[in-house]
């Protein structure tokens, strides 16, 4: 007997076709998805944890340094990774990437006229501990303009990628910051149903703040949890 994973919460997910985000109309499937009963192919998945986190991978204020410290407001981002059954997920990899404090990505395709920071790469990874808790250090990313519509700006955000315990639990998402005035104007954020949108916004917390050094934000991530009833192996 092997365990399966709860269904994707479609009502809480953005739709593939979300026309206000103008890259979606030509890149969204138009036919209904075909339901695939979970087999060994879906309940297994790549196993990545603390073993691929080395050196300063979890400190983006250090892992891109060349001749000094990156500019920007240092922040700690921490939280728990859980299944939707409430169980914390230990030793789970999180991959993160973001713009620098000026809103510029290192990526060659980013032509935004804002400075690159020679001491900031903007990517990192960390793993959850035995209680499902992760933590990394970075600088607060800047907002930046994009071409979706006239005067469009992305709110400050950090990209997250997780596998969780199986291929079925894969999640790619973005974390936003509380009080960002660009959130109600952002078609990517707004494509998420109102009932779950706020799950994408981190909470400022003094508990995670390192006195005299870096402000703390808490961002919990919930993946599909295990079904109570196992499948036939």
């Amino acid at each position: 007997m092997t365990e399966t994973y709860r269904a994707r919460d479609w009502a809480g997910q953005p739709a593939y076709l979300s026309p206000d985000y103008k890259s979606t109309p030509l890149r969204s499937p138009t036919r209904p998805l075909i339901a695939l009963p979970q087999s060994l192919s879906e309940i297994t998945g790549p196993v990545f944890g603390a073993e691929v986190v080395t050196g300063d991978d979890a400190d983006l204020t250090r892992n891109g340094r060349r001749n000094g410290e990156p500019l920007g407001e240092r922040i700690v981002v921490t939280g728990r990774v859980l299944g939707d059954d409430g169980k914390p997920l230990p030793n789970t990899l999180l991959e993160v990437w973001q713009a620098n404090a000026c809103g510029r990505y290192v990526h060659k395709a980013d032509q935004h006229d804002a400075p690159l920071d020679p001491n900031f790469l903007g990517s990192g990874r960390c793993a959850t501990d035995s209680n499902g808790v992760y933590k990394f250090m970075t600088v607060k990313p800047g907002a930046y303009p994009w071409g979706n519509h006239h005067n469009a700006w992305r709110p400050q955000h950090i990209h997250f990628s997780l596998f969780g315990p199986s291929f079925a639990t894969r999640l790619v998402t973005q974390m936003y910051f509380p009080g960002d005035p660009l959130l109600p104007l952002d078609p990517i954020f707004l494509a998420t149903p109102a009932a779950t949108r706020n799950l994408l916004i981190a909470a400022f917390t003094l508990d995670a703040t390192e006195p005299g050094y870096a402000l703390g934000y808490r961002f919990d991530i919930v993946l599909r949890g295990r079904n109570a009833t196992p499948m036939e192996a």
């Binding site: 953005p14 713009a99 290192v106 990526h107 779950t196 799950l199 919930v222």
Partner: peptide, 27 residues
């Protein structure tokens, strides 16, 4: 039962985070 964290797009700039060696980034 907790609500699952919604998905968001990977965006155009994932390369240096998810496939850095393939794209020539120092990570």
């Amino acid at each position: 039962t907790l609500r699952q964290t919604p998905s968001q797009t990977v965006g155009p700039y994932f390369a240096y985070g998810l496939s850095p060696e393939q794209y020539g980034y120092d990570f």
